[in-house]
Design a protein around this nucleic acid. Structure first.
Lengths: 195, 195
DNA sequence: GAATTCGCTCTACGTTTGTTGAGTGAAATC
DNA sequence: GATTTCACTCAACAAACGTAGAGCGAATTC
């Protein structure tokens, strides 16, 4: 048998795949912690125990590496709902799911960390992540203020995410998710449907 | 008369003051637009029509220049109130005042833009700006969840600020302040006092 | 088993960065 | 009016950056 996870007989495709994975993991961690500008290709290579030039060869450029490493999945379920009252819960749950999961967090944090300084990250967050979410939420909300309300819902959850996970506001970082939901959900509901 | 605003006989103190002011203004604009890491001392000097070395001589280092240029005033009034119901209005008004004022905005935006990537800016925002605000708001709110509610109030207004002014979410950037208040204030009130 | 592909490393280029120290000329001091 | 102070400029340094190209050795192909 050709070893799947063993180190015996590392085939060429395996080696390449492992290298790319190691580089991506290292890149995500460093981009997430320090942002795009403060992360160097050499640091990524060191962390991945790989030659710096290999990073270039596999991903082409630092920008391409970032785009491959930094993503924030847009929730596919729960946003387009018949019942608008479930919307706040879904939105809140999505950010908690993304960032309390140790595996998914670096990917999202890498994008968010650089969203204010790196033009590509900013565009990605604005147009892709927030934009698509806003569209779906607005469609569910309906009415004249739908887009504005959707954008405000997004803004509040973004503020929570940044404060809790990126800036590290103690009270929020230590807070139990249940308490966050208990206090924030009614507020978000008020954004969705008010006078 | 010694000319106050004239160009006649620029005294030594005047020259220094004008240089520092020009440098600070240029630095604020660039820090606000591109963030700390993407802003170079040479670019600041060029914009201020000044020699790069003069920036170093007047401020010591790039970090010191940033600390002198990037501030976000903590609201002194309106947060410690007898009536908690006025709190959301005050908090919301404060961010709109800070960022819709063309003169005050760059100072605050410079700090906020780098708050996720520059350690000093992050500490400044977390401990000084948000920290002090949170203390005062929590004191006004009172009760067991006071600090958590205060932090969440902060988080939401931060999210709005970032979305509207830094990321440039269209719907929010174009929105009339009155509409923002109309929809967001009830939500913030719900954060301050709910079950 | 020879030829070839290809993942990978080594070395180095060119640019940009923050920062420094010597030098200059005009304002301030006496 | 000579001396000193000081805002300011010039030139350059050392380090770090993203990136490119030649070469090596083992896996793959024939």
């Amino acid at each position: 048998m050709s070893g799947d996870t063993d180190q015996a007989s590392p085939t060429r495709a395996e080696r390449r795949h492992r290298s790319e994975a190691a580089i991506l993991t290292a890149a995500r961690a460093l981009f997430a912690e320090h942002g795009f500008e403060r992360t160097t290709i050499r640091a990524v290579a060191d962390r991945a125990e790989v030659d710096p030039a290999l990073v270039m060869q596999n991903f082409g450029s630092k920008n391409a590496l970032f785009e491959a490493a930094a993503r924030w999945a847009v929730p596919t379920e729960g946003l387009v709902l018949a019942d608008r009252s479930e919307l706040p819960r879904a939105a809140l749950q999505h950010v908690l799911d993304s960032f309390d999961d140790v595996d998914r967090r670096p990917e999202a944090e890498a994008l968010l960390r650089s969203a204010l300084t790196h033009p590509a990250a900013q565009a990605q967050l604005r147009d892709h992540v927030m934009g698509e979410t806003q569209e779906r939420v607005a469609a569910t909300i309906g009415g004249p203020d739908a887009e504005l309300r959707a954008a405000l819902l997004n803004a509040c959850t973004l503020g929570l995410t940044i404060s809790r996970y990126l800036i590290g506001v103690q009270v929020l970082a230590d807070a139990d998710p249940r308490d966050l939901k208990r206090i924030l959900e009614p507020a978000l509901e008020s954004i969705v449907d008010s006078p």
